[in-house]
Design a protein around this nucleic acid. Structure first.
Lengths: 205, 205, 205, 205
DNA sequence: GATTAAGCGAGACGGTACGTCAAGTCTTGTT
DNA sequence: AACAAGACTTGACGTACCGTCTCGCTTAATC
């Protein structure tokens, strides 16, 4: 048997327009910047992209998934995997990049809108975990794992705990707006967590 | 002079019905328990409470503010101000109480729904900060301040930072559902933060 | 028995305020002139009259009855009972008076609004017939009866028919606006009807 | 040149559903028969027609315009253009047809409701004049014009005046209900008007 | 002078219908 | 098949006005 894997069947009919695809995402991003998640309507995206609603819904089943895609590619690309040889510096670099995107661009508002939407739409929640939270955390987790590998922190250190502390604090300020996301805050967070992780012996707790 | 304070001016017109008020909040809570924030409609609240929509809108301008009031009184009452003489124990008690309410009752779902709504409605956001985030944090802040007073941690310790770390991590898990809110998690969070705060000297960062 | 009729029992309690009564009717007329029947609301009448809604509803059960009273006294006063000794002149004078009120003042709009309301509210319809249509027709009927008495027209002449022809045509133009209510029209109507009544012998039909 | 007329441009998008259109009008007529104009609500029409409110509002901006269309086609079809060779007979036939529809069916109630609504909604008033009053009068006007053509009445006879007298009287009784719409009344009206028109010389008035 | 009965201003209340909006689906003819 | 256009269903929204009601206060006539 030579043909263990079938070649992908040639698609029948008219192929999907790449131009339309891009135009939709661009239009969505435009509106997100101008008015935010809540005030974005699919009708307006269609109109701006010069596309029919059918064409949008053929690609994304809901408003949430469309906005998710319009948002995530660029956002993820801006999250670096630093490797400075120091846990503190790596975490700080990652946190600063996160803060920079969320404060410097309109992305923060969109991220907030998406997190809100995720709480209302279970299907989007799954996509969100698989294609956003998962990848970002995986990327960040290597920071801690590298530190373990270098012997900088105990092998018992729980990477998830570290990430929840560092980014949990950041998300908290983003969502509750009780305090600003300053660089001073970023440093204090990282310093405290790194110090805590180095000192505490999780095995005795 | 015995009359230093004038009696409150007699209210004019028919007074607002306390029965209606209570019936509305009760109906809202009922529906929240059954179907959650998203599926709660003002129409149904009105119907269940035996009240007209006008009567609801006269008191609360939006669904968010209504649910906020239905939710918050009880939730706040369940957040204790522990004073065991140990920062670790106090923080752990507070965090455990928070987790207990959010996992043991339907309150967690409502809290999540409200946080989502807060991101969509700026007016609700203000109320939220003033009447929920503010009070809860004030209560929790005393935990850190007591520890400072006892000399358990440095007077330079930033209470807000501590709270952001501890509860930020918890809110993060509540909203992203990437990991469960276990008691083991609560302990690890508190231990790490307490250790971090005791060790790190914020003044040099 | 000498006391066949009891003196009216002295009313108990606070007497109704004549000032309020007048203020309500004045306010209603003001609004009728400004915006017409449809856009008049009881709330606004109350506000303008410096009176509570209760005070209005104590006197008039519905918006229709209030407007009816605000409208009718003045209107009826302007409908003369001419007696010139000529059927043509009498009818013409009556019709001209009717047209003058409906075209020269805002009364026409209110009359139209009331006729519309009468079609929607059966209780108002009864009042309307008894206290408006009835009296006006009675007054106008004498015009025809006088002509019969003078021998100007046959004793078999049906006064109701004459009135329906003359004023029916006028109401028709008022309500359908297909043609204007000119004086030329008034003359032609009266001339034709008078001629018709003098000529036709109803007994042979 | 063979292509003098361009084919109508192909309509774009999904065509309006004829089934929905008919279902809406049928439902409206059903409700009109059962409960009349005032108690007809758009919500109920939608529900009965198995159609959404949007679909109704896309076609008719107001309740008035919807009911107008539901009412008028059938009503107009029942107004004949008699041509018996006699003005009296033609007018009588037309008036009798009008009375028959208004008394024998529920149409009378609807007509009354529509006339009332016309007084409250200026936009409906325009439609009403253009698409109801206008056509009906045009049809009736030919009755008088034929009589003029035959030399039965003077060429100076004003057809509008004749119609206002005959149908004005009828509408008057329909709207004010002060007297019934009997056949005796119809005959008396027509006889008097025809006699009046034959006798009076409008040019000298 | 106290009591009583109704009027009164204010404004909350139940009810009903309104007209709108956005989400997501469906149905045309066209590419 | 995908596409543009636009009609469609669904469900909730927030508003408006109606006519009623419930307060505390006022105004006479009666006791």
């Amino acid at each position: 048997m030579t043909e263990t894997v079938l070649p992908p069947p040639a698609p029948r009919g008219r192929p999907r327009s790449e131009r339309a695809h891009k135009a939709i995402l661009d239009a969505a991003n435009e509106i997100l910047e101008e008015r935010g998640f809540v005030d974005l309507t699919i009708d307006e995206v269609a109109q701006r992209a010069g596309v029919s609603k059918t064409t949008i819904y053929r690609r994304w089943p809901t408003k949430g998934t469309l906005v998710f895609e319009a948002f995530s590619a660029d956002f993820l690309a801006r999250q670096p995997s630093p490797d400075t040889g120091s846990l503190r510096e790596d975490l700080l670099a990652a946190l600063r990049a996160w803060i920079r995107v969320n404060k410097g661009t309109v992305k923060g508002r969109t991220l907030v809108g998406l997190i809100a939407e995720v709480q209302r739409d279970p299907e989007l929640a799954e996509i969100w975990r698989e294609r956003f939270i998962g990848p970002v955390r995986a990327q960040h987790r290597t920071i801690v794992e590298q530190a373990i590998g270098r012997g900088e922190v105990s092998p018992d250190t729980d990477p998830d705990l570290v990430l929840d502390l560092v980014f949990g604090a950041a998300y908290h300020r983003l969502l509750q707006s009780h305090q600003p996301l300053t660089d001073r805050f970023a440093q204090a967070v990282v310093d405290t967590v790194v110090a805590g992780v180095r000192t505490s012996d999780p095995t005795i707790n």
